[in-house]
Design a protein around this nucleic acid. Sequence first.
DNA 1: AAATGTAATTGAACAGTGTTTAAAAATAAA
DNA 2: TTTATTTTTAAACACTGTTCAATTACATTT
Lengths: 207, 207
Amino acid sequence: MGVAERKEREKEVLREQILTAAKTLFLEKGVEKTSIRNIADLIEYSPGSIYHYFKDKDEIFYALHQGGFQQLMTKMLVINDLPHPMERLKAMGSIYVQFGLDNPDMYDLMFIKEAPLDHVARTKALQWNEGEATFKFLRSTLRECMEQGYFQGHEEETLSFLIWSTVHGMVSLQIRRRCEVVLADRQDTIVKDGLNEFFNILDRQFS
Amino acid sequence: MGVAERKEREKEVLREQILTAAKTLFLEKGVEKTSIRNIADLIEYSPGSIYHYFKDKDEIFYALHQGGFQQLMTKMLVINDLPHPMERLKAMGSIYVQFGLDNPDMYDLMFIKEAPLDHVARTKALQWNEGEATFKFLRSTLRECMEQGYFQGHEEETLSFLIWSTVHGMVSLQIRRRCEVVLADRQDTIVKDGLNEFFNILDRQFS
DNA sequence: AAATGTAATTGAACAGTGTTTAAAAATAAA
DNA sequence: TTTATTTTTAAACACTGTTCAATTACATTT
């Protein structure tokens, strides 16, 4: 009868509970300081039971990091309203940077921490679907810019990587606190300022 | 008489031994997987004795990260042979990237890991001397480029941060394995290719 | 309704972590 | 030789991720 299906649903509910608890703890303490026992305490189950729903800790944080890409991708969709590809490219940069600064722990998990990639490597998936989709989105936007005459003489994939690296570099230096000591007085504005300088340079890459 | 000085020297010797052991282990396993007990085993002392020479684990890895900056700075000095500031700037980029790719764990510790900055924060030093010196080196080179007519209309500090971010972004995406999944087929060359694209863009920033 | 089989849950254990501390050993000064 | 100081140690504390045999809960079959 429908009993197997109901059980399946119940199992899914607890899986979600674990993820919600994990996300709550992770957003206030980060990955390292969120323990399996912390998660178990919060959902009022024993630590061992977590392992009936997730293979290991990395799998939990891989699932969370997937949610982060969902979030980021949703925010990215607003660029479709912009007519000019160059505006879309810059808007992508702004959204990416803003996402990183607004959600430092999630950004950390998505683009800095090894945990999610360790999981990808172990499942022998050989591909990081979330990252790949985001990168392809950047590539196609850049291609449109090139079709309009921007970035002549550049190679699409390489330039996409370079642009990604630039915004990632700014966000990650900020997140991992390399700015607050080197650029103490401009802590809050340096990333936005840097992004604007970047946009100026990009704008000049016409013809 | 000279007994206090001798003791001081002996203490320094053991301090160095600890650092050497820590470095050995850290270079083959990374920070997280190098434990105080591992270090103690290697120098054949008890774990507790380490705490007579270092306040905590972060202090040990802060000391190691200082050595990394020494290394990087030494490599950077060869740019003084280059007559044109723009060549010096590009050489700095190449050396920085090469250092990161050649010494991923050390780079990780210097520019990605939180441990050394945690120590900086706790000692209330309020400044990260190693990072500051490196950044100032970049700034002064960039200033010379600007004096020669490059990067007109840009602000020195902001542009320095942008350039640093770009090279750091490429290295850190590579080191934290975000390339090997998104750009699998170009894994070994993508950073060098990206750097060359970057140099092309920089060269065009004249007048 | 009782017995059986299956899935979920538990608590205890394992082997590790950074760190603290009281006691012991080693060394220096009196 | 005694006293004082420094160095070293073992043990303990409170954690960590993970495994596993035993228990509980529940669905199916007799």
